[in-house]
């Protein structure tokens, strides 16, 4: 019994290999690599990851073109069936553009690309993706983005907060995100989008390992299921 994961590669993805390495290192099973033009996902997936990068050169809006690519129809179907889906950075932008997560990721309020390790608070430590963290745990995860400024209307923000769907919150000023939101979960609890890169913090050589628990959480939930 392995952990069957897929990493989707869009033209312009650049964190797909990092994501695949992280999944293999933590699960012991190589992730399947799927191209954006594929119409179908491999059978029996336990996990789908949408990586960071600049899919389609960020044409139109970040994530807009990728969210309409052929494979995304299959990803949306899988998400609606309950398959866990993680979108990191550009992957988060793709998930909002695809309508799997609320809100939108806009240009950073500073106008600057931000590339550094930031501190986050785990706001919901009971989700599929965060159960391995302690409640309100402070973790350090790298960010690298230009369009990470999370926007949603006040009613949506209130609903996300009230339903425990804010997974991570920045503990410092990063990109102007509404209420410092760094990651959100969908209504059903099986889709997480986040701007910080957990796959870049899984071994000591990365400078920190706080991202590993996210992948471990998903894997242990499945083993326990």
């Amino acid at each position: 019994m392995g952990f069957t994961a897929a990493v989707i590669t869009f033209p312009g993805s650049n964190c797909d290999r990092d994501m695949a390495v992280a999944i293999e290192q933590i699960s012991g099973t190589p992730a399947k690599r799927v191209w954006h033009g594929d119409a179908e996902l491999p059978d029996g997936l336990d996990f789908i990851a949408l990586p960071g990068g600049f899919s389609y050169g960020d044409y139109l809006r970040s994530g807009a073109m990728a969210s309409r690519s052929p494979i995304m129809r299959a990803v949306i179907d899988a998400a609606n069936r309950g398959v866990p889906v993680l979108g990191v950075c550009n992957g988060f932008q793709v998930l909002t553009e695809a309508g799997l997560l609320p809100g939108a990721l806009m240009r950073n309020a500073s106008q600057n690309f931000v590339c550094r390790t930031v501190s986050l608070r785990v706001e919901n430590s009971k989700s599929l993706f965060t159960a391995g963290y302690a409640a309100q745990e402070r973790i350090d995860i790298p960010v690298a983005h230009h369009d990470g400024n999370f926007f949603a209307d006040e009613a949506t923000l209130d609903r996300l907060e009230g339903e425990g769907r804010v997974a991570f919150r920045y503990l410092e000023s990063v990109n102007g995100s509404a209420r410092d939101i760094a990651g959100v979960i969908n209504d059903a609890g099986n889709v997480l989008g986040m701007m910080p890169h957990p796959e870049r913090a899984i071994e000591a050589a990365h400078g920190g390992t706080d991202g590993a628990k996210l992948f471990e959480s998903v894997m242990s939930e499945l083993v326990n299921a």
Binding site: L60, A64, R68, E97, P102, M106, F151, A152
Partner: peptide
Amino acid sequence: QKLLANMVI
């Protein structure tokens, strides 16, 4: 509505 504009923003 489906592509050219993002109706959220």
